[in-house]
């Protein structure tokens, strides 16, 4: 645990000093929202469409962060140093996924208001509480799988290509549960022509998707924990 904390602190210090990853992810996400605006030609998104745009933008930003995760270790001999040290290798997994989780969380502090501004889903404020819970869980899935995939991809020759193509299919179950769950949070009633009201209250079944997402988190965490050691062997 102490080792994991040390690696995490190192990563966060590096990130704070260089500002390489998180700002790029944030700019990318906001640019994606704008691109979706032009692609869809809608001033306001609601329901499943809003959730889909948000989820896909986040996933792509996560892929961006995933690509950078182990690059410093690989290029500056961090792996060798870590393998020489008499420490548990799981510490690396814990630290890296915690770092990715934090990157994503910081990114969302920017992305959630930006999405409200650009996509203006009706009832966004009321859905915010549920959205945050979903975001925390989906960050966990993105972080765990991202770390695993990144550790596989970093030793390949075409790591910027291999990472995303392996990662995206693996993230699909998380994306499905996140997109449907938040879609239900952002769902609206059509009251009259051009007039919509958000659906609130106990009757939207987003909670079930929260459960599916949480189970996927647990499953991926166990799986990654089981195989991660093999990826650090020299």
């Amino acid at each position: 645990m102490r080792v994991a904390w040390a690696i995490l602190r190192k990563d966060l210090t590096v990130e704070l000093r260089t500002l390489e990853t998180v700002p790029a992810m944030a700019i990318f996400t906001v640019a994606t929202f704008v691109i979706f605006h032009f692609g869809l030609q809608r001033d306001s998104l609601s329901g499943q469409l809003a959730a889909g745009v948000f989820a896909v933008s986040l996933l792509f930003a996560a892929v961006l962060g995933t690509n950078r995760l182990f690059v410093a270790e690989r290029e500056q001999g961090g792996f060798d140093g870590f393998l020489l040290a008499p420490v548990d290798r799981t510490a690396m997994f814990l630290a890296k996924s915690a770092a990715l989780f934090l990157y994503l969380t910081v990114l969302e502090i920017i992305a959630v208001p930006a999405f409200g501004l650009f996509a203006a889903p009706p009832g966004y404020g009321g859905a915010l509480g549920g959205l945050i819970v979903f975001l925390l869980l989906v960050n966990l899935a993105f972080a765990i799988l991202g770390t695993l995939v990144s550790a596989i991809a970093v030793h390949t020759r075409a790591r910027d290509l291999i990472g995303p193509i392996i990662g995206l299919p693996l993230q699909i179950p998380a994306l499905i549960s996140f997109a449907i769950g938040t879609g239900k949070l952002l769902a609206v009633h059509t009251v009259g022509p051009g007039e919509v009201l958000p659906v609130h209250g106990a009757h939207h079944p987003a909670g079930e998707w929260l459960l599916v997402l949480a189970l996927y988190d647990v499953f991926t965490a166990l799986l990654a924990y089981a195989v991660f050691d093999f990826l650090l062997e020299e």
Binding site: I152, H155, T156, L161, I162, I165, I166, V227, L231
Partner: peptide, 23 residues
Amino acid sequence: QPLRFSIEDPERQATYAAVFAVV
């Protein structure tokens, strides 16, 4: 296959492919 192809060291190729296969 692309994953295997982009790892040159056979030992590492086998290990990483096995991890991928398990996942």
